[in-house]
Design a binder for these strands. Structure first.
Length: 509
RNA sequence: CGGGGCGUAGCGCAGCUUGGUAGCGCGUUUCACUGGGGGUGAAGAGGUCGCAGGUUCGAAUCCUGUCGCCCCGACCA
């Protein structure tokens, strides 16, 4: 019985959201849990997150930040301190109201039920983000300008009671890092915000092979409580936008709300300027949608839990052990002698007693960048059969083992580069410049485009005008691209007033 | 939270209209055969049909409630 052509059904063009879920399942990344909106991240998925963590953590530390940890539960009153912030998160907070359970037997059914008792005088909110509780700590920690800048990062989980959860992309609980810093001056805080913005962009490119548009959010799209929000926007294969990371300049809003003050060089009391910034497990979802194909997950080598899987092909019993030994030896050589992205190569020999085809497709679906097969003929000829995940599943090349060893790091890098290029091409082909309103409006109708991509327009409209357009066409201003704001004046797509501003519009996750 | 769809074995589904305590495909287990490939055969395991009530002699099937999932929308990392 011939198997279907693709390992994943439906395909991307048939049904993108369903395809996404099937990829997650086929690659064994995560599953829905009994807890509403929360996922169980399985080892293969968590290893990807760990790789992202390792890389980013190194970058944060290299730029002077230190890790710390703050409480999961935030006193309700803290959230009330910054009005805009409080309002922004109010609708999605999980609240802890009791601190004890009492067993109670139902007289009718005889079943034991646990009843919440011990009501708290002040409820706690499970952190949706930690500005307030970290701000409270900062207000104790900062006294003098000598204490600044204060550069803190936290790796943690947060909870936002989202209406519509989807694995990795939007779950009620998610893992992330949140940087929180305090500075003497506005300039210094903005510089920090920009530096992290660039750090995220670099990391997405070098680690995840995802090209991003760097831009600023409009007031309507800004983080609640921020004066400026910078974003890295990625385009995935259905041409929707996804905010992959953000960096906020919070001005003195939180400093004033929480009395984070210091005595400056002139012996005057001043409010600090704060920033916050984060990326989350949403990056894993972004990664899946950016690169994967109709045979399953496709992983850039830097984040692949295994970068190379070696499959022994053992058709004859008498050569079986020799082949397995050769595979193990090759794996050991790779691990000992080769590094990629500053880490030893991650190589696995799949010696499970299964049919070769089963094993091959397993690793295809899991997105392993390079598959190596070694059979009796290859062993005799000192060759390996090389298959790349960025190429079709049936494509293979036979190369000398020594050549393979010499070129393996380059080959991995070429997989990374080809994924990056492909993503960049998709993105660039789906950003269209648009300067007149009728074209703009027609663009978003379903008859014209199922996956409309993004439009770049001259923009000088107000917040109200932006929100009206957004609502009408189910789009948002993804960002004001940083490298597009200093060009020639052109008439705003809506008002016709001359403007240098440019806005990028699209549908988003 | 609004609109639509859906919860039956790990996954995908049939059965429900016309109530009589479950079936198919894939997967899985064991054995044999096979062996550059997601193969073949045989035997087997696995479900109180999301949960709680109700109607009934009898409920996967009818009624009520509830929880959850998926898609679209509003909200958002």
């Amino acid at each position: 019985m011939a198997k279907p052509k693709n390992a994943i059904s439906p395909t991307r063009t048939e049904n993108f959201p369903e395809w996404y879920q099937q990829v997650v399942r086929a690659a064994d990344l995560a599953e829905n849990s009994e807890t509403r909106g929360c996922m169980v991240i399985k080892p293969w998925g968590f290893a990807i997150w760990e790789a992202i963590q390792r890389d980013l953590d190194g970058r944060f530390k290299a730029t002077g930040h230190e890790n710390a940890y703050f409480p999961l539960l935030i006193p309700l009153s803290y959230l009330e301190k910054e009005a805009e912030h409080a309002e922004g998160f109010a609708t999605e907070c999980a609240v802890v109201t009791h601190h004890r359970l009492e067993a109670e037997k139902d007289p009718e059914t005889g079943k034991t039920k646990m009843i919440p008792r011990g009501k708290l005088s002040e409820p706690y909110v499970i952190r949706p983000t930690s500005e307030t509780i970290i701000g409270a700590a900062f207000s104790r920690w900062v006294e003098s300008y000598r204490d600044l800048p204060l550069l803190i990062n936290q790796w943690a989980n947060v909870m936002r009671w989202e209406m519509r959860p989807r694995l990795f992309l939007r779950t009620a609980e998610f893992l992330w890092q949140e940087g929180h810093t305090a500075h003497e001056t506005k300039e210094e805080a903005i510089e920090e915000t920009r530096m992290i913005h660039q750090l995220y962009s670099d990391a997405l490119r070098d680690l995840l092979a995802i090209p991003v548009i760097m831009g600023e959010k409009t007031e309507a799209e800004r983080f609640p409580g921020a004066d400026m929000t910078l974003t890295v926007e990625a385009m995935v294969q259905d041409k929707k936008a996804i905010q992959a990371g953000t960096s906020h300049y919070l001005g003195q809003n939180f400093a004033k709300a929480q009395k984070i003050t210091f005595v400056d060089r002139d012996n005057k009391e001043q409010f600090v300027h704060t920033t916050s910034w984060g990326v989350s497990t949403r990056l894993v979802g972004t990664l899946i949608m950016a690169h994967s194909d109709d045979d399953g997950l496709v992983l850039p080598p830097r984040v692949a839990p295994q970068q190379i899987v070696i499959i022994p092909v053992t058709p004859k019993e008498e050569s079986r052990q020799a082949i397995i030994d050769a595979c193990q030896a090759l794996a050991q050589t790779l691990r000992n002698e080769k590094t990629y992205g500053g880490e030893a190569l991650r190589v696995k020999v799949d010696d499970r007693d299964l049919g070769g085809g089963v094993k091959k497709w397993d690793w295809v679906k899991k997105g392993v960048p390079l598959r190596i097969e070694i059979g009796p003929r290859d062993l005799a000829e000192q060759k390996v059969c090389l298959q790349r995940r960025d190429q079709a599943a049936n494509e293979k090349s036979f190369i000398g083992k020594e050549d393979f060893l010499r070129e393996v790091v380059e080959t991995l890098d070429s997989v990374h580069q080809s994924l990056l290029e492909k993503a960049r091409t998709l993105r660039d082909e789906n950003i269209t410049e648009c300067s007149d309103l009728s074209t703009f409006e027609a663009h978003w109708s379903d008859e014209n485009h199922e996956d409309p991509g993004w439009l770049l327009t001259p923009w000088g409209g107000t917040r109200e005008e932006e929100e009206e357009l957004s609502k009408k066409h189910r789009i948002t201003v993804r960002c004001l691209p940083l490298d597009q704001q200093d060009g020639a004046e052109a008439p705003c797509v809506l008002t016709g007033q001359p403007t240098k501003g440019r806005a990028l519009w699209g549908r988003s996750y």
